[in-house]
Design a protein around this nucleic acid. Structure first.
Lengths: 306, 306
DNA sequence: TATTATATTCAAATAATTTGAATAATTATG
DNA sequence: CATAATTATTCAAATTATTTGAATATAATA
């Protein structure tokens, strides 16, 4: 039973096999030949004295031990690539990759404009952009899944080592399709009336943290969508009501397709933030923040888009 | 700049070099020859495009990047050996984590006593305990969110692969605060009378399955609470009536703060169960069940608590 | 200054991995 | 139900990676 026989390469192989569903497909992905994978897995199983795949003929399925090795091993793999990144950053001062999460309520064009400028300046730096929602946005930062979050909303989670900077003022409104029953109301709509109708909600991408559903009108039926673009279209089609960024639905308001509902305590403007970890001293991150907060980035000429 | 060129072996080598103070000494420790270490380090530096050791003649010292690689890399190394160890435990039938849901009506002390014994025997196994209610308890098991449910009540959902074992006999009573209007009745209380008052209900933690509200007196107003402790306090304060475990409110009955209502078809004793998945053959789970059902665990000395 | 210990380089030796063909087992397909 | 198509494994051969030990250079030590 050899100690420390588990290599990262064998973890990569197990990961690929499970992701692709077969040794053959994994081999193709890894630029190898299936027998090479058999060899590596066989060797690992032999040295660990543990069966990782239970072979049912040509179909191999992970044993419980294998399953556990994979889930934990994936963390090890991502820790490795994260460490490589950090080492490069310490060595050069510049990161090789910057990961950004954009809060779903935000227009992506100002950010994309800043990224465009940034990638022109630094062609060697990879930029990853993802959309996150509510708690998920903050969580992605605190769990180090991203380096910068853009357009996140209050409350700021009281987590050590997070720095914030104001980003922009947002205007959120509760809106429905003009054809929706709620669209027939004149004047104020009570919350009681709202609760009779279906609410469209973006599924909070947060996995572990406390739910921070800021806009839950309890009791009523809900419809969950995956991102803001879907939410807007769902509401435009009259599936339900919900809070939307004013800027995003302006065209539909102008065309009369959608209507703003007057609800007490809603439709307020609020401030959004950008945030990052103090520990992250990357020059690329710093430059990107500058570009993002510079006046040119927030040029309001173009149309709203996700 | 090859990605993922950092191997655990090279980390072991760097670690040994720094611990031993020289390539030569490290080579001796690792059963290799110094030039082999030079080769590995050289290759890593080349693929990372980063100098890890700054060579001052025959003395090599870590660069800042190298230092950071070592401190973080050591964590990777220990994570690897920890993972290997855990995989071995799983392979031999011992799980690394056992998740338990306790039905809210149950006193938690017998379970905690069993868990205490269990964690003493198996310090490496993590135990997670949650309180669930009604359908939520069964659901957490059938959805594999927990490995064992304790004190669940009939009916047993007809789901394949669930094994049960009798746990204990419970006595549930409908009770109110002595100051509550219903507390003024003498003798039997009709269901019609009950329905004029507010009922305190623990919010069913079930998400998808059919509501199994075994105790719904329709029509009447309700007050929802999150757990049994809140429910008892709510009823003690006279907010409403509801079914409570007899053992839990004994002190309040004795002090005259609360009163049992005589309602036809209510206040019965019933049997509760523990349940798990047949597929789950974990040795830890088996042992925990033994401890839980052994006579010592159900020692009725201590007071009731949640 | 001479001595000793050390890291590196290099060609040769060795070990590890990869390959491709053969085989056996299984699933998909007509 | 038989046939074709996939698939994982095994094995010997080929290839690649690593290790070795000698040669060399460098710096610390006596």
């Amino acid at each position: 039973m050899g100690a420390n026989s588990l290599t990262l390469e064998s973890l990569e192989i197990i990961d690929a096999i499970v992701r692709r569903g077969s040794f053959a497909a994994a081999a193709k992905e890894l630029g190898k030949v299936p027998s090479a994978l058999s060899y590596t897995i066989g060797k690992l199983e032999e040295r660990l004295e543990i069966t990782l795949f239970s072979r049912h003929g040509r179909k191999s399925v992970l044993t419980p031990a294998g399953k556990m090795l994979l889930t934990e091993g994936r963390k090890l793999l991502s820790a490795r690539s994260h460490l490589e990144q950090e080492v490069r950053r310490v060595a050069t001062g510049w990161e090789t990759r910057i990961r950004i999460a954009l809060e779903a309520i935000q227009d992506c064009t100002p950010l994309l404009r800043a990224i465009k400028q940034f990638t022109d300046e630094h062609p060697a730096i990879e930029v990853h952009l993802n959309e996150e929602v509510m708690g998920g946005t903050w969580e992605s930062l605190s769990q180090d899944r991203v380096d910068l979050i853009v357009g996140a909303t209050h409350p700021i989670p009281q987590s050590q080592g997070i720095r914030t900077e104001p980003y922009k003022r947002n205007q959120a409104v509760i809106a429905v399709a003009a054809s929706h029953p709620l669209g027939q109301f004149w004047g104020k709509v009570s919350r009681g009336e709202l609760s009779k109708h279906r609410q469209v909600i973006i599924h909070d991408s947060s996995i572990i943290e406390v739910p921070r559903s800021s806009e839950m009108y309890s009791e009523n039926r809900r419809f969950y969508v995956g991102n803001m673009a879907q939410k807007i279209q769902a509401q435009r089609l009259g599936i339900g009501f919900g809070t939307l960024p004013y800027e995003a639905i302006k065209p539909y308001l102008a065309s009369g397709e959608m209507k703003i509902l007057e609800v007490e305590g809603a439709n307020n403007a609020f401030d959004s933030l950008i945030a990052w970890k103090v520990a992250n001293q990357g020059k690329g991150l710093k430059r990107l923040r500058e570009l993002l907060l510079s006046p040119e980035a927030s040029d309001p000429q173009a149309s709203f888009s996700y």
